[in-house]
Amino acid sequence: MNQTIATAVEEGNLYEIEDLVNGALAKGEAPKELLEAMMAGLKACGDRFEKGEYFLPELMGAGDAFKAGMGVLAPKLRAGDQVSQGKVVLGTVHGDVHDIGKNLVGFMLSSAGFTVVDIGVDVSTEGFVRAVQEHEPQVLGMSALLTTTMLGMEGVIAALKKEGLRDRVKVIIGGGPVSKKYAEDIGADAYGNDAAQAVNLVKGLL
């Protein structure tokens, strides 16, 4: 594993990550191995956040570095004229600005040939409903890292029902405090406990 790239993501080194990824690609390192290194860096940052060694700015910095690196790497991971496997809308619920897990899921799905519409963080219930209306995805993915914000997921599902949209879209949820039982309780179609599951979960829903 390219430890230099992993460390750059972990430490949120936004200004060097693109050069590091480009340099590694120029040396012939495999794109998937570089993705694994960046994911390892994100995980290390997340672990330090959970231990209280890192705080929100460090978490967001690592996410920004990951995005920058993926801007270079993503085209190398995707097949040139690959037909889309389906459309997925992803967002972090209202009141929550954590996006590392969401970003990982998005890149995993994009690399597997899905069209991903990322509507960002701190998304209101109305924002999720509008995104489903506008983009007509097969799957809606919601993320939360806080126990207080994950409660908004139930509100989104209720709003989709109210607008007559629930039967048109599968709903998958995930994030630190989220569980399979909570997904079942609020009527979600699936729960994922890590980004690596995302592709198989989404394929299983379609």
Rank of each mutant, 00 (worst) to 15 (best):
G46F: 04
I119G: 10
E29F: 12
E10Q: 14
M70L: 14
L35Y: 01
G71M: 05
K51G: 02
H135N: 14
E53K: 08
Q138F: 08
L160G: 04
L14S: 10
T4V: 14
R168N: 12
E36F: 01
E11D: 09
P75H: 08
E11K: 15
D99R: 09
V178F: 04
T7D: 14
P177I: 07
R48Y: 01
P137K: 01
G61F: 08
L42I: 14
I157R: 11
G95H: 11
D99W: 03
F128T: 09
L104R: 03
V123C: 02
H94W: 07
E184M: 10
V97C: 10
D189L: 14
R166W: 06
F128L: 12
L73K: 06
D122R: 07
A37T: 01
G12F: 00
K87T: 15
L160Y: 01
L206Q: 13
A131S: 15
K180M: 10
T147E: 00
D47Y: 07
D167C: 03
V89G: 05
D194H: 12
E134K: 13
G187K: 05
G46L: 02
K32F: 00
G174I: 11
G71W: 07
M153G: 04
M142L: 15
L206I: 08
S110G: 11
M108R: 11
Q138W: 02
L90T: 12
S124A: 10
G164V: 08
A198E: 05
E163K: 15
A196V: 06
L201I: 15
L140I: 07
E134I: 06
V139Y: 06
A6N: 05
R168A: 12
D122V: 09
L42K: 02
F66G: 01
G141T: 04
K67G: 03
A68I: 08
N13R: 14
E11Y: 00
G113M: 05
R166I: 10
H135S: 10
T7G: 01
D122S: 10
G80F: 05
V88W: 04
L151H: 03
K203Q: 15
E50P: 02
F49D: 07
E163I: 06
N22P: 02
L34Q: 00
E134A: 13
N193K: 15
A74M: 14
A30H: 13
G120V: 05
V72M: 06
L73P: 08
V105H: 10
T7V: 10
G46D: 06
D122W: 04
V139S: 13
D189H: 12
I172F: 11
K87M: 12
G41Q: 01
E126M: 03
A190Y: 05
V9W: 01
A159C: 10
E163S: 13
E10F: 00
E58F: 03
A159H: 02
T147M: 02
V83N: 00
G28I: 08
V121F: 03
L205V: 07
V132P: 03
G106F: 11
N200G: 13
V121T: 14
N2K: 07
